[in-house]
């Protein structure tokens, strides 16, 4: 059958091609944050808690790259020292979220009708709660702490990912290659191991990257509301929380930590997409 519309893809508008610029920027950003975690002293210009009281609320300058806060602490150095804790929250929440999502998603897609029905309902009920609301509910029960923040964000984002993973498993399960394996007489465990699991979990790399970025954003939202890590800590959300009081006098105290979070989230998402594309390209 000649399908003129996809005729060698010629008549279709050009697909968006890889923009290596985005890749380079993402890798550079991630590397920078990795250094900030491994050895913050290497790139920080001041101590995270060093007070320069006479230089409080200084706008960004050559000495204080990101400006100073109300006690004259250097914001840049605080951002650098806060990286490890912020990433820890992001990674921790991703771990919680995806473990839960994989568990719920696979039960919903693979188990018998009854269990799948129940778990499907659970996913749908949890999905009817917006992420932030579910996270707030958990904070209300457990009280604010770093552990609460990890679990609140992890559980809050899990239902959405559970739906994605359920969909992935179902589409692998109903695929032509699984039917081909059945007609070759392969056993269920073999089909599960060889086809369904690897194909369903293939997008997981991209999902992990996306989730780390999103988790940091959600966690910082909690901190911004004063429901996360408490202020003297240089954790990014805490920086936002303490900077909030000075919005009218010192914009940099909220804008710059926010920008750092956005940069990390975008870099993680972009990197995830590239990894995903590279995995798929291996087969072309």
């Amino acid at each position: 059958m000649t399908s003129l519309l996809t005729h060698n893809g010629i008549l279709s508008p050009r697909r968006v091609t890889a923009v290596p610029l985005g890749l380079i920027a993402s890798v550079a950003t991630v590397v920078l944050f990795a250094i900030a975690v491994a050895s913050p002293g290497l790139i920080a210009t001041h101590g995270p808690f060093a007070l320069h009281l006479q230089e409080s609320l200084h706008a960004p300058s050559l000495t204080y790259w990101f400006g100073t806060d109300e006690s004259g602490r250097d914001l840049y150095s605080r951002v650098v020292y806060g990286t490890s804790q912020s990433l820890l929250i992001g990674l921790g929440a991703t771990g919680v979220s995806l473990s839960l999502a994989v568990l719920l998603g696979s039960i919903a897609a693979l188990s018998n009708r009854f269990a799948a029905g129940v778990v499907n309902r659970v996913i749908e009920v949890l999905f009817s709660f917006p992420t932030l609301l579910l996270a707030l509910l958990l904070v209300a029960i457990l009280g604010p702490s770093i552990l609460t923040q990890i679990f609140a964000v992890g559980i809050g984002t899990a239902p959405g990912y559970a739906r994605i993973i359920r969909g992935q498993i179902l589409s692998a399960k109903n695929s032509g290659y699984v039917e081909a394996a059945i007609s070759l007489g392969h056993s269920r465990p073999r089909i599960l191991r060889q086809h369904i699991i690897p194909n369903a979990l293939r997008p997981l790399v991209a999902i992990i990257a996306l989730s780390v970025g999103q988790s940091i954003v959600w966690a910082s939202s909690l901190s911004f509301l004063g429901l996360g890590v408490a202020p003297p800590s240089p954790e990014w959300g805490a920086l936002l929380d303490s900077g909030r009081a000075y919005i009218t006098q010192a914009w940099w105290l909220t804008v710059i930590p926010g920008l750092v979070i956005v940069a990390l989230a975008l870099a993680a998402t972009t990197l995830g997409k590239y990894i995903q594309k590279a995995l798929e390209r291996g087969e072309r």
Binding site: S175, G176, Y177, E179, A180, S183, L184, G185, H186, S187, Q194, H195, P198, N199, R202, E283
Partner: peptide, 25 residues
């Protein structure tokens, strides 16, 4: 199905669209 598996090798199938019947990996 488990008892049928032993016989499955005696009958096979070719579809119209083989692409979707191959694991892309």
């Amino acid at each position: 199905e488990p008892r049928r598996r032993a016989l499955r090798g005696r009958i096979s199938v070719v579809y119209q669209d083989p692409l979707s019947s191959f694991d892309p990996r």
